[in-house]
Design a binder for these strands. Structure first.
Length: 308
DNA sequence: CGCTTTTGACCGGCGC
DNA sequence: GCGCCGGTCAAAAGCG
């Protein structure tokens, strides 16, 4: 096998696995920061990353396994990883039934008058949220680390850079991007790991309200037919798996240990910060779930979704 | 000309 | 209250 056409994925025991671009890589989530777990080699960048995502609210029950299609566009580089966490809207709202109306500004339909007013307010000046809000709520976030030579990975959506900041304790800056599609509030941050410059940390925030403008969406009735699974959509936020986060037991049982993961720096990490329980739980209508499922199928072929 | 990137300024949150 | 820091704005520059 020509390794230039393959993607190397490091297992958590450090052993490499090479996959073709059509393979799917199964990974798990080694991040336990904030719950008494430390990365075994003290990857500071990973720690900072996790902290950034509000890892303190991460619960092991939200861990999940996910299978990640490798985007051929990134084939010479190493993919990655996935992880998830959920941050409740408030420290006391860990219950699934607890619903927050915050952070849902990307919801295009069924807007209440208050919602519209809030949106207008937000459009006017996002920096000046209502004082009545306890805190400025964040959109659900999903982050992952990818070994890549390029900072800005192609993911099928069009992004406009709106800021760049130096990262504390890191020689690499963090770039801020926003989806260029009108009414889509998805943002992402891209930064390079300090401890491993070959690793790019990408953090998505929010959910796209539209299909990828680059790659036409496949039908929902089956896995993508694109031989390369093309590209891009593979990097579409896999947060649509969120229901599974809640519904499935942690893959590590109740006794996972920090050392048990065999985590090392080059092991990709990902984390999800699904703060509010938002759309799925706010309107228990299936429409959003279907929509998300559709997005999920951009990421994971349907037959995989049926597993577990 | 339209869109994107760059970059310094600004703002809010948070810890001390 | 103050300073630090992360995140965003917005004008200017760059680019096709």
């Amino acid at each position: 096998m020509d390794r230039r056409d393959a993607v190397k994925v490091e297992n958590f025991d450090g052993s490499p696995t090479f996959c073709t671009t059509n393979d799917h890589v199964q990974t798990s989530y080694p991040f336990m920061q904030g719950h008494g777990f430390d990365f075994v080699d003290g990857d500071k960048s990973a720690l900072g990353f996790v902290e950034l995502l509000g890892m303190q609210d991460f619960g092991p029950s939200l861990l999940d396994m996910i299978q990640v299609p490798i985007p051929p566009a990134q084939a010479p580089n190493v993919q990655v990883v996935m992880g998830s966490l959920n941050q409740p809207a408030t420290p006391n709202s860990s219950s699934i039934s607890s619903v927050s109306s915050e952070g849902l500004n990307d919801e295009p339909v069924n807007k209440s008058a208050d919602d519209e007013e809030e949106e207008q307010e937000k459009n006017k000046k996002e920096l000046k949220p209502k004082k009545t809000n306890q805190k400025r709520q964040r959109e659900p976030r999903f982050a992952f680390m990818t070994k890549s030579e390029v900072d800005h990975l192609e993911d099928g959506y069009r992004w406009r850079k709106y800021g760049q900041k130096a990262v504390k304790n890191s020689p690499f800056p963090r770039s801020y991007y926003r989806c260029t599609t009108a009414s889509c509030n998805v943002k992402k941050r891209v930064e390079r790991s300090f401890s491993d410059p070959s690793v790019v940390v990408t953090t998505y925030e929010g959910q796209h309200t539209h299909p990828s403008p680059v790659m036409p969406r496949p039908n929902f009735t089956g896995p993508p037919s694109d031989p390369g699974f093309s590209s891009t959509a593979a990097f579409v936020m896999p947060m649509q798996r969120r229901l599974s986060f809640y519904q499935q037991p942690p893959p590590f049982g109740n006794s996972f240990s920090p050392l048990g993961f065999g985590y090392n720096e080059s092991t990709a990490i990902a984390a999800v910060n699904y703060l509010q329980h938002e759309k799925h739980f706010r309107s228990s209508s299936g429409s959003n779930i279907l929509k998300d499922h559709g997005l999920l199928q951009d990421l994971v072929p349907s037959h995989m979704l049926n597993e577990g």
